[in-house]
Design a protein around this nucleic acid. Sequence first.
DNA 1: GCAGCGTAGATCCTATAGGAAATGCGATTT
DNA 2: AAATCGCATTTCCTATAGGATCTACGCTGC
Lengths: 229, 229
Amino acid sequence: MATKNQASGGVSRQVLADHVYEALLVALMDGRLEAGTPVSIDGMARELDVSPTPVREALARLEATGMVRRMALRGYRVAPLFSPEELADLMDARLVIEPANAFMACKHADPQLTAQLEQAIEDLKAAPRGPSFAEFRAYWEADERFHRLIAESAHNQFLLSAYNALGGQVQRFRFFGGLGVTDADYAIAEHTEILKAFESGDPELAREKMVEHIEGVKQRSQHDSEVRS
Amino acid sequence: MATKNQASGGVSRQVLADHVYEALLVALMDGRLEAGTPVSIDGMARELDVSPTPVREALARLEATGMVRRMALRGYRVAPLFSPEELADLMDARLVIEPANAFMACKHADPQLTAQLEQAIEDLKAAPRGPSFAEFRAYWEADERFHRLIAESAHNQFLLSAYNALGGQVQRFRFFGGLGVTDADYAIAEHTEILKAFESGDPELAREKMVEHIEGVKQRSQHDSEVRS
DNA sequence: GCAGCGTAGATCCTATAGGAAATGCGATTT
DNA sequence: AAATCGCATTTCCTATAGGATCTACGCTGC
């Protein structure tokens, strides 16, 4: 058969558990798996037409991201949505990590990085902002890309791990669901300020602008929480 | 062989994957699993006298901690030991997260917390400091407990996740292997300074003392790296 | 002697089977 | 009527089997 095994090189054969992991992630972000609902191993295996073994492995990995919770002998369930207080805590944690990322990344800034950051801002401007999943997915992707670029450019694998551990990007994505993007104009302006700091090569300014940005996000998310409730 | 398990009590019904996880963790910290060596799923299953399924699940969880790395279709292998540069990066990341933890935890400080911190320092003083695993395990446990208490007392689940994501405690433990504890006196003094800041209820001072402590750890670990090589 | 090939073994990955516990539901009892 | 008990179904968990791929090693041929 040789269906698609490394014919083009680099595309190593995929493991079923990876597919299951991706499918679960999309289902979570899409809202098909609502917060609190149990995720049956056998049931998910039937639904995806695979055996329970890969599902079990995918869920074990997902648990580390905080998207699902596991209770021994009682299975997995989708983690509950954040309360406004937890959302504030998330922003406080981002306020600890991301300004440090910006400071360090700015010290390594080069034209390629600033170009990529600028591209992310442009994509942010161009993205639609509707309330449905398909609409704000592009917006979310550009926003996430901006912050991740900075986190990766700090060149510190541990800070990157810490950034990933927040899982804030995905959770925030879930939060958007049914609400849509409400702070695009502010976010674009603040991202641009951060980019300018990078272009001027001023790490302290980059840190400062990142603080201002996340504090803005925190305030606006609190406001959105009130609107939602 | 089907009759050897759960002969004890039967009250503590645990999942096999949890036992496998613990066994792997101990083996890693103990040095029985050296850096770089492959961890065969089937082989580990034979060694622990279980089926490969729980081993697979335990390894999927371990992968998230960074202790093992996975390559699709090629199995798991023990993550390499840190280079001095990576160790410095780890300390830089701790310098970002742990002072913030100390600041926030100090704002919630109560007599119970300070008592527990003091106990951790006392245990640190009492622990043996030899080069073998069994000897410095108690030292490591008391040190880890001190920092974890502060991380948990910050009352921010995301900062706690970030702290856990560093995996620094376990990795540092591995680093001690064959070297022993060399900086106990400094660490005890610095921990005491942090405790005093907590007792005086001065969050800014707590942050400052934590910075001094981790900078001290960073410098001394760099020195140890040179000795080791 | 050295390169190429083929077989055997090991390993990973997935599927299937079956035991044990938990959940749901209906009948019985107080 | 409410609570409790028992049974059936679901679900989790572990073991086992088998296919596919990679590695090791010996053999043949030049």
